[in-house]
Simulated scan of single mutants.
Amino acid sequence: MSSPRDVRPLPAAGDLPRVRELPKVSLHDHLEGGLRESTILEAGESLGLALPADDVESLGAWFLRAANSGSLVTVLESFWMSVAVMQTADVLSRVACEYVLDLASDGVIYGEVRWAPENMLTKGLSLDDAVEAVQSGLETGIATAAAQGHRIVVRQLLTAMRNGANSLEIARLALRWRDRGVAGFDIAGPEAGFPPSLHRDAFELLASEFFPATVHAGEAAGLDSIRSALVDGRASRLGHGVRITEDIDATGTGPRLGQVARWVRDHGVVLETSPTSNLQTGAVPSGNLAEHPFDLLHRLGFAVTVNTDNRLISQTTLSHEIALLCDTFGYGLPDLERFQLNALSAAFVDAGERAQLEAVIRTGHAPWS
């Protein structure tokens, strides 16, 4: 197993060590976008892949250049490398185990990791084989973290590609594994032109089985995508969702919310924002964190959460994202606690586990208040 990924310091990282100590909830983090560079290099060499770099630093820089393209499509294209190595049970288990340990070292106590099993079948794995391999790795990582004194729970969200035709099959796969580590369903991939309505059969099946879904929406497409996520996808959370601001009129004497924005706010639909990623993909066109709608949405009472999206590709961590927001918007400990409680409120857990995790979050934030 390779050593944990050491993210190089980025500007304006705030009091990062202190933030790292806080108990955190991670809702939106792609397994394919969170590998360690060293793991890609080692697995890629064993598979004979031609990689664009042959050392950890250069490979991290290659991913960061792709991330800073300003295009979601370009960012998605950079996934080819991590997906290419994640084709065997051994590598899937290793990546999942390292994923847990990296989150644990960053102070995460509960995480949901999303990934697309349909992309991991080129070396003979079945869908169930792939899910089993990831679950084995997660359980190993959880046990290893516990032995190191860190309690963490990580569950799978199975993702279907929105530009594919396998969503119903992935929904059935998620239901088969619902009591064995899979907590929810998602669709991802190119958003524009591939609305959730194309996958209505999958979402209707999941709804009939009372199985939760989160939907990427409001990142590369606007209000119609969000509306479809809510109506066709039955989404209780929105992956990113930052373009909900297209339904908010912030001019004049005070912000006025349209029908969709009011529904999202008043019904506590959680927004899984990923600040750095949102700048990199063009979801926030200016590329300036001070112009990210996170703070506006927070002040208006939306249930905003902080996430990483793709830790490798964006060269970030959850603690770093929180520290950046603190530096930019002047948040204090009560705000940070609220962001974690927002995330916990939408986590795909039962009431008993949510209460236990809430106690950990409140206790972990209390010493600084």
Score class of each variant (00 low, 15 high):
residue 175 L to N: 02
residue 293 P to I: 06
residue 37 E to A: 13
residue 297 L to A: 06
residue 184 G to I: 00
residue 316 T to V: 07
residue 363 T to Q: 13
residue 191 E to M: 00
residue 112 E to S: 06
residue 158 L to C: 03
residue 48 G to M: 05
residue 170 I to C: 04
residue 361 I to G: 01
residue 66 A to M: 15
residue 253 T to W: 11
residue 241 G to I: 02
residue 281 T to N: 09
residue 153 V to Y: 14
residue 16 L to V: 06
residue 14 G to Y: 04
residue 185 F to I: 10
residue 176 R to A: 07
residue 255 P to A: 14
residue 362 R to C: 14
residue 101 L to Q: 02
residue 238 L to K: 03
residue 152 I to H: 00
residue 254 G to W: 12
residue 313 I to R: 08
residue 322 I to F: 10
residue 265 R to C: 11
residue 253 T to A: 12
residue 59 L to V: 00
residue 116 A to I: 02
residue 328 T to C: 04
residue 12 A to G: 14
residue 100 V to K: 00
residue 36 R to D: 12
residue 142 I to L: 09
residue 345 S to N: 06
residue 334 P to L: 10
residue 41 L to N: 06
residue 153 V to C: 15
residue 276 T to I: 08
residue 181 G to S: 09
residue 278 N to Y: 01
residue 203 F to P: 00
residue 182 V to M: 08
residue 68 N to S: 14
residue 257 L to Q: 10
residue 96 A to P: 01
residue 160 A to C: 11
residue 216 H to N: 03
residue 157 L to F: 05
residue 225 S to C: 12
residue 51 L to A: 03
residue 17 P to I: 04
residue 66 A to Y: 15
residue 254 G to C: 12
residue 199 H to G: 03
residue 120 M to Q: 08
residue 341 L to S: 04
residue 348 F to V: 08
residue 153 V to T: 13
residue 115 W to M: 10
residue 307 N to H: 10
residue 117 P to C: 05
residue 22 L to A: 05
residue 84 A to I: 04
residue 353 E to Q: 14
residue 85 V to T: 02
residue 228 S to L: 01
residue 314 S to H: 10
residue 144 T to S: 11
residue 224 D to F: 10
residue 152 I to N: 00
residue 58 S to C: 09
residue 62 W to S: 08
residue 334 P to F: 07
residue 325 L to D: 05
residue 217 A to F: 02
residue 69 S to H: 03
residue 244 I to L: 08
residue 192 A to Q: 11
residue 278 N to Q: 08
residue 203 F to H: 01
